[in-house]
């Protein structure tokens, strides 16, 4: 794939993000921070989005996600059983208790991106829309990095 569609996609995505940000403010006081994805090899079919979600005044549940770079996205969890790790969709979504922070991190919960449209390149920002049980839809920008993003977002990547 050439760079032109990527730039168009990102530009379009950024525009959509601004629109959505203007439309969805503060319904539930959910806070979503540190959204990132690891860069992917050329030809990769999958990717994962990670983030920290802090619940608002009421209990909520992360039910699903979409992204323009994913043919399909699902809420998944990597689990360990008898020393082996496997991954499966989270039945019923991820509970986000009021006021508590739930970590979507490598080796645990993540937004699984299937049918990746194009490789994720370090430095890119990718839009992810999250759907919650409350009906709220939040669009966030995931920073693509080569290495794991720490909770401290102050440093540059």
């Amino acid at each position: 794939m050439t760079d032109v569609p990527r730039i168009r996609l990102i530009t379009f995505s950024a525009a959509v993000a601004l629109l959505l940000a203007a439309c969805t403010g503060g319904a539930n006081d959910l806070t979503i921070d540190d959204v990132w994805a690891r860069s992917t090899p050329p030809g990769a079919e999958t990717a994962a989005f990670y983030m920290h979600i802090t619940g608002g005044d009421d209990d909520n549940t992360l039910l699903g996600a979409t992204s323009p770079v994913c043919g399909m996205a699902e809420i998944h969890e990597t689990t360990e059983t008898d020393g082996t790790m496997s991954m499966a969709p989270v039945q019923g979504g991820i509970p986000i208790p009021a006021g508590e922070t739930v970590m979507l991190e490598p080796g645990g919960f993540h937004v699984m991106c299937m049918g990746l449209v194009e490789p994720l390149v370090a430095g890119d920002e990718v839009l992810v829309e999250l759907q919650f049980e409350s009906g709220e839809r939040s669009t966030v920008e995931a920073s693509v990095t080569d290495d794991e993003m720490s909770g401290d977002m102050d440093h540059d990547h």
């Binding site: 690891r38 079919e45 999958t46 990717a47 994962a48 998944h76 991954m87 991106c113 080569d146 794991e148």
Partner: peptide
Amino acid sequence: YTTCPDVCPTTMADLRT
């Protein structure tokens, strides 16, 4: 395996680091 979105890329990236 390459369609592993979470564990494998994390490990390969950690090894790279």
